[in-house]
Structure formats: C-alpha cells, structure tokens
Design a protein around this nucleic acid. Sequence first.
DNA 1: CGACTTAGGGTCCAAATGACTATAACTCAC
DNA 2: GTGAGTTATAGTCATTTGGACCCTAAGTCG
Lengths: 233, 233
Amino acid sequence: MDSSANVSERQAQAPALAISTVIFALRSDPSSGRPEIWLPLVRRIRQPHLGRWALPGGPLGGSESLQDAAARNLRETTDLEPTYLEQLYAFGGLDRAATRRLVSIVYWALVRPDQAGLARESENVRWFRVSEAAGLAFDHDEIVAYALDRLRGKIEYGSVAYHFLGDRFTLAQLRGVYEAVLGRQLDPANFRRQFRSAKDIVATDDVLQGVRNRPPRLYRYTGQPAPASPPPG
Amino acid sequence: MDSSANVSERQAQAPALAISTVIFALRSDPSSGRPEIWLPLVRRIRQPHLGRWALPGGPLGGSESLQDAAARNLRETTDLEPTYLEQLYAFGGLDRAATRRLVSIVYWALVRPDQAGLARESENVRWFRVSEAAGLAFDHDEIVAYALDRLRGKIEYGSVAYHFLGDRFTLAQLRGVYEAVLGRQLDPANFRRQFRSAKDIVATDDVLQGVRNRPPRLYRYTGQPAPASPPPG
DNA sequence: CGACTTAGGGTCCAAATGACTATAACTCAC
DNA sequence: GTGAGTTATAGTCATTTGGACCCTAAGTCG
C-alpha cells in the first residue's frame, strides 16, 4: 500500500496485529552478589525508530495461538524456554506507531538465567538491567513499567517467584528474588517463617555446600508451573 | 475472498480483530430483595451461531482506541454509560470461530442499573442473570466466567464495588454488592467496622428515609472513578 | 582458637479478622 | 399506644498475621 495514503484511507485500513514479549531474568551483581532484574531487547533494523532498542516481537502467525507466538519470539531472541508466560495487556492507542495503526498484544515471561542463553548476545540482541532500559522505541518504556508492576503484584500474591529459580533453591535465594523484585530488604527470619508454612514448598534432605557459612537447606517448589487463572483461549 | 479458501490460504489471511464487552449490573430480586448480577447479551443475526446469544461487540474502528470501541458497543447495546471499564483479556485461540481466525480483545464494565437502560430490551438485546447465561455463542461462556473471576478479584481488592451504586448509598447496599459478587453472606457488624476505617468512604449527614426500620446513614465514595493501574495505551 | 557470617529457631507486640452479644431506632399490627 | 419485628450500630473476645528483634547453630577464615 502506498505510504502516502491519507488519513481516511489509513482509518479504513485494518489495524496491524503484533505480539511482543517482556522477558525477565535475574542476574547477580558481580560485586554485591545481589540479584537484579534484567531483560533482553532487540535493536530495530528498520523504520520507524531505526537503531533504537525495543521489545522482542513480531506479527502473529496465522496458525499459532497468541501464547505460542509469544513463546516463539522468546525462543528466537533468547534461545531460552520460559518458566512462566502470561498475557500482560493489549495496547492499541491510536498514536503508538507513526506509520500505521498498530495493536500489540504483549506477554511477559520469566526465564532462568542459569543456562547459556544470557551470554548469547549479538549486535542486535542485548540484555539490560531493567533500571537502565529507558528510551526504548514506540511506547515500550511504558509497557516495561507496566510489566514490572504486574511482576510485583504477582510476586506478592505468591506463586511466581519460583520460576526465576532452578528446581532446588535455598530460602536465601528465594528471598533474594523477592528483594530484587520488590526493591527492598526483607527480614530473613520472618521470611523463613512465612515460607515454612507455605504448603507448596518442601524441604529436601540436602544442603548447599561450598559456602563460607553454615550450609543452608535446599527446598523444592511443588506447586503448579502454569499460571493460576487465565484461560487458554 | 472466496469462502472455500483452503487451510494454507486461511493461515496467510490476517486475523480479524474484534472488541467485545462483558457488562455487569446489579438488579434486585423482586421477592427476596437481594441484588443479583445481570448482564446484557445480543442475539446473533448472522452465521456462525445464528440465533444464539453472545456478548456485545464488533470490529475495531480505525480511529478509536480499544477502550473507546468497548465504550461504544456498550452504549450501542444498553444506552448506558459505564461507571467502570477495564480491559479483561485478549482471546486468540485458533478455533474460536469456524469461519475465520478471530482475535477478540475483551473489556468488562460495570453500569448502574438505576436508569432506564435495563428496561430497554428488544428482540435482539436481553438482560440475563449471570447464572443463567449459558450456552452462548463462540467461547463466550468461558469469557463470562473469566470476567466474573476478575470481578470477584477486584472487589476483594477493594475499589470496584462502588461503581455498581449511585453516589450515595447505605452500608447495607454496599454489603449487598459484596454478597452478590462473592456469593456468600457477610457479617453486617464486621463489614461495617471494615468500611468505617476505609479512608475513601465518608459518611454524609443524611439518612435513608422510608424504610420500615431504623434509618441507615448514607455514605459517599470519594476514591478515584478510574481503574487503578492499567495504562491508557 | 577466636572473629565473622549466615542459617534457623524463638519471643513480643500491634493490627486485622471472624464469631458473637447487646443496644438503638425505626415501622407495623393490634 | 404498646409490643413485636427488623435492621442499624457499637462493642467484646479469641485467633491469625506480620513486623521488629534476639539468640543460638554451624560453618569459614585469619
């Protein structure tokens, strides 16, 4: 279609539909050892916003569900499998993209950073601290902020922190997740009390070796790996 | 386009994008006087699912935001203005509609039933008790169930019950809203205590006259009329 | 061996909540 | 007008929850 289409022609045009994904992972600060929230961004290789960083995403394939599309562009950018994937919001404001009316259905995901994926950066894919991810293309700054809100809400509700971690973890590691997401320190003793009484977290017989203090016990999460409420549709 | 398009042609076709709205209102049972949740449905006047009841909705106009589209089809079906309107979820499963790939961005709304709108039914628009809204077209049964879940969650969180009521209400009326939504009885004394300490609900100087018992005080909600978190986009 | 660090157990207190009782203020039947 | 009925409103008591804080356990490191 001719890019000189006038306003009424643009209005008659069907809105374009895209899927984007906000991908969160934890990476520990090398000096302090405290975990921080990171996310991968991709560099725009075409107009508009050429050269700026943006959320991974793309058009919805004709034979994939919305969630499959989100999982696909997660895999394509990071080579990781999500441990958690949930729809965030559908953004459809009139002025999101200059060239064409664009509706984006955005997902958010958690991945485990343990694997090689975090190192797998390239010229056009790079991981950023969430606090340093500003000046993104389109309205992606707001989308990231909203995804962070959702992450905080979900972690307070309870069942999402485990998806940042491996299958076995110490309570201190779990507390580190909470502290990184909520942005404040938590009392170790009270945190322990609260999670000892949580029914879907069980102690294993093993402890973590190789630390310079008393070896902490390892725990396992036995709850559902899938989100609690949303429908499959 | 030819309706005999084969599978690969259908996959190449861009998904159709529609906006639908789940509209909730309270109406009191004539005999018991207890409020119940109702919603308006429209009868399908074309295939597929011709003749069945469905959520109000339609295609997204080229020059309206998603929320504007939801408000528009709310107005078109009920002639009411929403007191609350929030995005629910984007449904995009592959088999939602037999004829074409369809992505529906669904909103949910609360309206005040006081006005004339509830009576304004027609051959193709009718209000149903939410418990009796079954066998709807497409996947609308699941969508209504999910909207109800969201409504319950939001009402427990706190700031949404008022949007069912007028600007002045008694605590018993407010409790009626909670009981209707949560589906269980609440202790009047404890309910009162809880809402006396809520900062965004203030007592007026007036009481409700014309009841056959001690006249209850009228209260006013001073919180935000808009949803708390979602972005405008 | 002693200093240091984190794990893990406990107490104390304040706030929130559920179950329940009692009194107040009105209408209505008689 | 008097008492029964109904709902409003206040208060009590016990339980639960969460935050602040303390103490001991079990390691490492000098």
